[in-house]
Amino acid sequence: MSDVSPASSRSSTSSSYLAQVLVFCLCWSAAFPLAKLGLRDAPPLKFLCLRFLLASVLMLAWGALRAWRRGTPFFPRDPDAAGQASRWRPWVLLAVIGLCNNALYLGLCWSGMLHLSSGLSSVIISTNPVWVALAASLLLGERLDWRRGAGLLLCMAGVCWIVWQRLGLRDDTTLGVVLVSAGALSLVAGTMLFKRWQQRLAHVDLLLNNAVQVGVSGLLLIPLALWLEAGQAIHWTPSFVWSFTLMVGLVSIAAYLLWLHLLRTRSATEASALHFLMPPLGLLMSWLSLGEPLQGSDLLGILPVAGGLWLVTRREPRAARAAAIA
């Protein structure tokens, strides 16, 4: 008989999930100040190309070493695949997901931020969980009940409060709004595709999954970077090297691996709702690392975000779920 009680098992699972969420949010939020630091010395698309390609090479090397030590195939075969076309299908699917999650999302958002205030950019990007929840209810059959709906609205209110308090007198262009909005919708599309194709990609571990996504994104951005940013050089200053190194390790590798894991183990709505934490955490990190001012209204806005996340991610008791299904 097992000595582990159901209650202690649930507690351990809950603690593990909270730890994953904490690390994910901290790593993903670090992208805000790190991007601000790195973009002082590099154009956005060239920065992203190098970041994606180096992250992909490191993860592929890590995966190859791990497969060699275990004596397992580096590129696993789909047990249900029949024919050459079927063997290539998972990698094509991953390339499409990577195009949405990395190349289009970050390429469009970073380029759009050059023509848009950071406040309005944060509002647009932070609407992502709302669109994911609506799309998941329509395309994936995820339940969008009053509790989740109220939680999303609370999160949105908190983020809008923070940004409204910080909005300065800046010129916001239509081009910037279009680019950042398209980038945010690209991440929604990538989230939906990953969840829809989850069973087809179940045999590919998350390390190789992420390596293919970012690698394809880096390759696809090369011609655009050379064309749109011709003559714009990267200045390898100590601050850029610091920013670049952490963006590769903390964001492209650690944060994205955790993001894909959360998508596999949680609903699209629950996982995406965590993105509401990124603007306030990004402001806090910018204050700590770059000395940017932090206002009391910023901390006040975190309260509805935290309450909304609790409503969205709280799991119903098993008996209640069974009654709802019945």
Rank of each mutant, 00 (worst) to 15 (best):
A19F: 12
G291L: 02
G83H: 09
W62I: 03
W91I: 10
V92H: 11
A202G: 01
L169I: 14
M278F: 09
R264C: 03
A31C: 03
G218Y: 13
S267M: 12
V4F: 11
S118W: 00
E292R: 06
L246V: 02
W236D: 09
V123H: 06
I302F: 13
A82Y: 14
E292M: 05
L250M: 13
L50P: 09
Q165T: 08
R143Y: 10
T173G: 07
R69F: 05
V92M: 14
G218A: 13
A157L: 14
V23T: 11
A230V: 00
L37P: 00
L154Q: 04
V132A: 08
A319I: 14
Q165E: 11
Q295D: 07
E292N: 08
V212N: 03
M1S: 13
S126M: 04
V96E: 11
Q232V: 05
V132Y: 07
L37Q: 01
W227G: 11
D78H: 10
T265G: 00
S2I: 03
F75L: 15
I162Q: 08
C25G: 00
Y17L: 14
L187V: 12
M285F: 11
F244Y: 07
V241S: 13
V248K: 05
V163R: 02
G190P: 12
T72L: 12
L108I: 06
G176I: 06
A271R: 03
E270K: 08
S286W: 04
S126Y: 04
G215V: 12
A225V: 01
P304E: 12
W197P: 02
S267A: 13
G307T: 02
V241P: 04
A211H: 05
Q165H: 13
A271N: 04
R196T: 04
L37E: 00
G119D: 02
S297H: 09
Q295V: 04
L152R: 07
C160W: 10
G307R: 02
C109I: 15
Q232R: 12
M1T: 12
E270G: 04
A182Y: 09
L220M: 07
S118M: 05
P6E: 04
G231N: 07
C25M: 05
G249I: 09
L207Y: 11
G231M: 08
L167K: 10
V132H: 08
T13R: 15
Q232G: 03
L309M: 10
R200L: 13
Y17C: 01
T174E: 09
W110H: 04
N210K: 01
P90A: 10
G119P: 01
S297D: 08
F52V: 08
L144T: 00
P238W: 09
A136D: 06
G38M: 01
P79L: 13
P279N: 03
P44W: 02
D171E: 15
S11P: 00
A230R: 06
A42I: 03
C109V: 15
L54M: 07
S117K: 09
I124F: 00
Y17D: 11
A202E: 11
P33K: 03
W68K: 12
L37R: 02
L219I: 14
P43N: 03
A85F: 14
G307H: 03
S289L: 14
V212D: 06
K36C: 00
P79V: 13
